[in-house]
Structure formats: structure tokens, C-alpha cells
């Protein structure tokens, strides 16, 4: 039984990370119909901004700040203006191809300009473990869990309790109506890109001490974020959290109790079942379909 809870706790920490990445992905998708196939690489990259800043002599906290700012500017602002905006009116597919190309570009960039070798990354907290009822929890994963939860809760409050947030939600749900209501739709869309830029940087800082900074890190993370977003529900922040946690826990449990070789298959099967029988996701709202 102890091992079951051990897996549950580890899965929760992993799931919280997936949730953090999925939330940003969902926001951007909702407001601009951008399926960002480079989202995983967006999480991989800020760690290298931070490492580069530290190599230039900045202390860790300052480097993190620089990393977040760079991420917001490059992965938020520039991504929107250079890649998304010119192509939005041509439908989803060209943009999908563009983000696939972007993911290759970022991966190769990190490799060519930094290193192909995995890099150690400083941790926010010392490596301490707690033993509770036979379960071991590292301080690191607790911090990850707490930080991810806090970020997502803050985002939820922003979206539901503030005027700005409600405007963003209105934009996401019905841009035309939002425009009639006098909301500056373009500005709201821009905000979601900036928020995503910040979220991926935070995710990067949280996971890199555990995952190590490496140019291929985005491959698994990006797919995990899609799965979490869809399973939980595309149009709800809460949904992404649920999806992320289900994914993290399920991965551990299926690897331990069913089949390690097929551990990757279980989330996919759940995804297919969810899409076929509850396409709006577990917590999502049904969207009106236009013909």
C-alpha cells in the first residue's frame, strides 16, 4: 500500500507540471485557435536562457528573472507577432506546420548554440527528503506541487474574478460578441500569449533541476500537455489541472502495475475514449458547433 501512495505522490508532482504547461497551451488555443506544437520546446528553452545568463555572471535569482522576461518577450510577444498573426486568417493547418517547424528550430537552436549535452540546473531548494508513513517525498517535488498549484490558482482567480480575466474569457468563448461588448480583443489575445510565455518559464525553472536541461526535453512534455488539456477539457483551466494530474498518476500506476513497455499507451487510450464519448473533456463545457 505504501508503494501505491508513493506512486500517487510522485504522479501528482509530475501531473502538476503537465497541468502548468497545459494551461498555457489551452489559453492560447482558446483565444487564437493556435495549436502550438512547439509548446514542449517552449518549456525546454527558458532553462537555457537562465543558464546562459548565469554563465554571463548573473546570480541565480537574477538569471531566473531574465529568463522569465526573455521568455515572455520571445515565446509570447515575438511568437505572436512573427509567427501566429500573419497566418491566423488562413486557418489552423498552415499554423500547425509552422509550429512543428518552430519546434525543430528551437530544439536545434538550443543544441547548436548551447550544448547537446544535458546540463545540471540549480535547484530552488536543497535536496531534502521527508518520510511520512513509509512514503518518501522530496522537498523539490513539494515545491513543484505548491508552485504549480499556486500559479494555476492565481490564474483561475485572474480569469474568473477580475474584469480583465472575464474579458479574456469572453474573448476566448466568442470573439465577435466580445468585440461588440467593447472588449479590445487583440489586446486580450496578446495577454494570453504573454501569460503563456511566463507559465512556460516557470515550468522550466521548476522541472529543470529534476529533468536536467536538455534540448530534447520538450518532446515528451509537449505531447503530455496536449493530452492533459484534452482529457481535462480544452476550455477550462480546472480541466487542465485534472488532466495533468490524471496523466501523471496514471503513467506511474500503469508502469508499476500493468505494463512498463506499454506505459505510454494508457493515457492515449483514455484520450481516445474521452474524445469519442465526451469531446469537451472531463470538465469542459460543450461548445456550440458552427457549420
Amino acid at each position: 500500500m505504501a508503494s501505491f501512495f508513493q506512486l500517487l505522490v510522485s504522479g501528482l508532482a509530475t501531473g502538476a507540471i503537465y497541468a502548468l504547461i497545459a494551461v498555457g497551451f489551452t489559453l492560447v488555443w482558446q483565444t487564437s485557435q493556435t495549436i502550438n506544437f512547439a509548446q514542449g520546446e517552449f518549456v525546454m528553452l527558458p532553462a537555457f536562457f537562465i543558464l546562459a545568463a548565469m554563465n554571463a555572471g548573473a546570480p541565480f535569482w537574477l538569471a531566473c528573472l531574465i529568463g522569465i522576461v526573455l521568455s515572455v518577450v520571445i515565446l509570447g510577444l515575438l511568437f505572436k507577432f512573427i509567427i501566429v498573426d500573419p497566418m491566423l486568417k488562413y486557418g489552423v493547418l498552415p499554423l500547425v506546420i509552422s509550429t512543428i517547424a518552430l519546434s525543430l528550430f528551437l530544439k536545434e537552436g538550443a543544441k547548436d548554440f548551447y550544448s547537446s549535452q544535458a546540463q545540471p540546473f540549480p535547484s530552488l531548494v536543497p535536496a531534502t527528503d521527508f518520510h511520512v508513513f513509509g512514503i518518501v517525498v522530496s522537498l523539490q517535488s513539494l515545491v513543484v506541487l505548491a508552485a504549480a498549484t499556486a500559479t494555476v490558482v492565481a490564474l483561475h482567480v485572474l480569469l474568473t474574478k477580475t474584469r480583465l480575466g472575464r474579458s479574456m474569457q469572453a474573448t476566448a468563448q466568442n470573439p465577435t460578441l466580445a468585440r461588440i461588448l467593447g472588449i479590445d480583443v487583440n489586446r486580450m489575445v496578446l495577454y494570453t500569449f504573454l501569460i503563456n510565455g511566463a507559465l512556460v518559464a516557470i515550468a522550466s525553472i521548476l522541472i529543470s533541476p529534476i529533468y536536467l536541461a536538455k534540448f530534447t526535453n520538450g518532446e515528451t512534455l509537449g505531447i503530455a500537455a496536449f493530452l492533459a488539456a484534452i482529457i481535462g477539457g480544452f476550455n477550462q483551466v480546472r480541466g487542465a489541472i485534472l488532466g495533468g494530474v490524471i496523466l501523471g498518476v496514471l503513467d506511474n500506476l500503469s508502469a508499476a502495475y500493468i505494463s512498463a513497455q506499454y506505459r505510454g499507451a494508457f493515457p492515449l487510450i483514455i484520450l481516445i475514449v474521452v474524445i469519442l464519448f465526451r469531446p469537451q473533456g472531463l470538465l469542459g463545457r460543450i461548445e456550440e458547433r458552427t457549420v
Binding site: P86, M87, S98, A101, L102, F105, E108
Partner: peptide, 14 residues
């Protein structure tokens, strides 16, 4: 070369 290729694809799509 892969960076250049990826960049060309993005430009082409734009």
C-alpha cells in the same frame, strides 16, 4: 542546416 530548413518552412507558410 536543420535550423535553416525549419526557418524556410516557417517563411514559406507565412
Amino acid at each position: 542546416y536543420l535550423m535553416v530548413y525549419a526557418a524556410l518552412i516557417m517563411v514559406m507558410m507565412a
